[in-house]
Design a protein around this nucleic acid. Structure first.
Lengths: 181, 181, 181, 181
DNA sequence: TATGAATGAGCCTTCATTCAT
DNA sequence: CATGAATGAAGGCTCATTCAT
């Protein structure tokens, strides 16, 4: 792929991220092209289908989020890592509607590369470390954490809450993860 | 308004509830008309805009939910009422996509009638009673409860979770509302 | 269906016949709408798909042609009927590209009503009568007549032949149908 | 023109022949490029327009067909040559949609080189020899033969007829060329 | 008032053609 | 010269909304 093509591909993805972030996946591809400063044909050359574009977007986000998790796994703070991860994800969602879709995506099937094979693996790792360190109750299961993640992120999308309210609410939601004293 | 007109209005709302419940707000107005057994023109005569129809729907749901809350307020179980309310709302959402929008609606501006002036008032009342009874921590604020409600309901919309996972996750999310022992 | 709707449907079909007659089936639906003096949505309301429109057109033509055949069957000139029919069809094709497609259509599946159940039946009847009367050789089979029909009509579509050349050529092509003296 | 350029031109024409043979003239130029193993720009450098490419293709085919005729002229079987030629052309058409267009081409204007100046000349020669040998009726004119050719080839394009039906139908169509006994 | 046909903007996608690399 | 990315005009189709019946 030529340099300018790669550059355009990147610009399209960035434009798409912005557009879908505010308008959701129903935003028009034309709008993406406009924002990217390319013709509509160019978008479809890079992503033959609107679904392909969305998929590529998901993949990017998924990679970022999973890398984030991997980093926290390696951070040497097993007790706080899971909580920190959730907090980051929620904040990220508040700024990008697309994030939440990737959590809820069913057949998205976008394999990611790196130390952890998937987002679930990554969160599972964070969960395990948290439990080993005693910061997370042993009774908590991975599916519950994932569901909680989705809920928290979905919530962050709506209501125009400020960062403070988001933080307080999340704090409450996470109490249940800790071991009962 | 003539009797048959009012009857049509009601049928349209019911059809809309069913349609939007399963297909979300992107379902076509034509589908609503079809399900209601009226012509498309009739729908637009009653609700000049699709947004108006959705708004009316929200109002109905809001009324139902608020009435539900009012009933719980009067039920004489101050300790459990808030928790019960949240649980009901989440289950209702899982069966009706529209519910969640009503929680997140921004400028919805749909005044409701009855003992409690708004959903916030109703939840506020449940919160106050819960705190008085000692079942809910005094530090919890209303905006946090509302945000938690939105998050839980949004979550219930996605992922195809079964009722069991929904219940477990909700249980974890609500731990933080209780007083620390 | 309302009167104006039926009128529009008819106008669309007529416009479509004209448009597809000169430009073939690749002509745009928009052009049809323009020629019919209606908006594009109206065309799609009557014929949900371009294929549906073409199919309706085929059906109309098929009906006309089959009726034509039925009339000739009843005309009391068994010896000449088949030849007359072929000649008429070829002339019709020369003025309407669509005709030929209807002969070549594979899964078109447009049942027609009337004395003869299908075009093949109609031609078969003409063939049988011709053979009984001795004007057509007994060795000729229906599939050969149909194929000959397609060839003659296809030919009539091209080359800008004048009516005279068409007539002469057809005359030559039909000699083979007659019994060898 | 450089050697590699000429080589590319040839590869494009061959690819085009294959592609248009099966998909007709609506096949995409990109597909031709792909099949030829060159970039799309190369196709347009050699043939500034899709129509130019088709025209060049026609010319090639025309040359082949005319050469075929010339060969038959020289074959020493004046009685059978015209019939053989028609049969070959029909079979060629059944395997190559493009052939028929070259017969029907209006302002194609593609002068061909070789013993016979044009396809018409070639067929005229076959006709003349056939008539001299007594195998073809004297009353037959060249334009009739050409028209018959077009019809037979057009027919061969459609209906999914098998080789047997094609042969039988052609047999019938050609009877009229022979002298009446 | 109800009906449902008509409207037309807008969406996704394709493809001949141009042009920077 | 070749490459292949970019362009942008259509095309088929959908759907909220309007309006004649």
């Amino acid at each position: 792929m030529r340099a300018d093509a790669r550059r355009n591909r990147e610009r399209i993805l960035e434009a798409a991220e912005e557009v879908f972030a505010v308008a959701g996946p129903d935003a028009s591809t034309e709008e993406v092209a406009r924002r990217a400063g390319v013709a509509i044909g160019t978008v479809f050359r890079h992503f033959p289908t609107k679904a392909d574009l969305l998929r590529a977007l998901m993949k990017r986000l998924l990679q970022q989020v999973t890398d984030d998790a991997a980093e926290l796994v390696a951070s040497g703070d097993p007790a706080g890592a899971l909580f920190e991860f959730v907090a980051r994800l929620v904040e990220r969602t508040a700024a990008n509607r697309a994030v939440v879709n990737l959590l809820a995506a069913e057949g998205m099937e976008v394999p990611i590369t790196g130390p952890l094979g998937s987002l679930s693996d990554a969160v599972g790792e964070l969960l395990a470390r948290g439990q080993e360190s005693g910061a997370v109750a042993a009774r908590i299961r991975l599916d519950e954490v994932m569901a909680l993640l989705v809920s928290a992120c979905q919530g962050a999308l709506h209501g125009g809450w400020d960062a403070d309210l988001r933080r307080r609410t999340l704090g409450i939601m996470l109490v249940g993860l800790r071991p009962s004293p």
